[in-house]
Design a protein around this nucleic acid. Structure first.
Lengths: 154, 154
DNA sequence: CTAACTGCAAACCTTTTGCATTGAC
DNA sequence: GTCAATGCAAAAGGTTTGCAGTTAG
């Protein structure tokens, strides 16, 4: 029952953007990305496919996509400095759990987050268009590592 | 029944920080602030009381307080560029609703947000220490302004 | 053909840092 | 007295911009 979703490229065309070689490249790259990429990572990945592509183009494209609501910008609690990360706008709101120790990022799903928008809308009249829910803390692995049972070997 | 909360200054002392004139000034300023201030606004406000205070001191102090969990850093969806905003860590999690049109920031309360942390903890094992819930969208006022009755009675 | 987009390089803006000096405890 | 915090100035880091040339529609 999942609505077959248009590709990012298609959605860009639908918005009337000029599909240059660079933009096609970036669209694929963002859609295929397994991790959250910052602008520089996007740039470097793009360069492996088109050595001529320029940083400014990457920044400009990311901004364009952001303004159109096709990608979301994340800060991930600034665990790695003040860069911004980008992800193709997901269908459902999800939360980012950022471990401040190891930098790991988890994205648990669940109905709470799905409810969030509609509740805000109902309770405040505010019309949410983009959502950024980020929690910084300690991931389960780091908690275990950090608390090696007060008196035990290694 | 509200627990009488220690002042920021007191909590800084409790953490063992050296209370310099500058830090006392900044602590008061942050606690009294009605709005979310960015580093530069904090700096300028501080300067009105102590013209000698240096930007670097402001940044360093804000970072110290952030690391100690006494203040939270916000991005407010970058409505006004990439500066960071600071607020004294509130007792309860609250969400920031940022109007992307007029820049207005609302902070609705409510039990949903209070639940958020404990649910994450329970459902994922992640231990949240700082929370940033920001939604960008359109505030009720801007919605009214933007939709001057397309053909309907309002 | 023309407006939109790109590459380039320089500028921008916020934040950080090394170092000598000052001041809190 | 000692070590942490400050002021200063310079640099860093990420991002933006003006301009001339290129390209999609």
């Amino acid at each position: 029952m999942s609505t077959p979703r248009a590709t990012l490229r298609e959605r860009m065309e639908a918005k009337g953007l000029r599909m240059t070689t660079q933009r096609r490249l970036l669209a694929n790259l963002l859609e295929e990305a397994e991790e959250h990429l910052d602008a520089d990572e996007v740039y470097r990945l793009a360069q492996t496919q088109d050595p001529q592509i320029h940083r400014a183009t990457v920044y400009r494209t990311l901004n364009t996509l952001k303004k159109l609501g096709l990608v979301d910008e994340l800060d991930l609690m600034h665990v790695n400095g003040d860069r911004h990360y980008y992800e193709v706008r997901p269908r459902k709101l999800h939360i980012h759990l950022v471990c401040m120790k190891c930098g790991d990022v988890q994205e648990p799903g669940g109905p709470v987050w799905d409810e969030l928008k509609s509740r805000v809308r109902k309770e405040t009249g505010f019309k949410p268009e983009m959502v950024r829910v980020e929690m910084g803390g300690e991931c389960p692995q780091c908690q275990r590592r950090a608390t090696p049972r007060a008196g035990e070997a290694s």
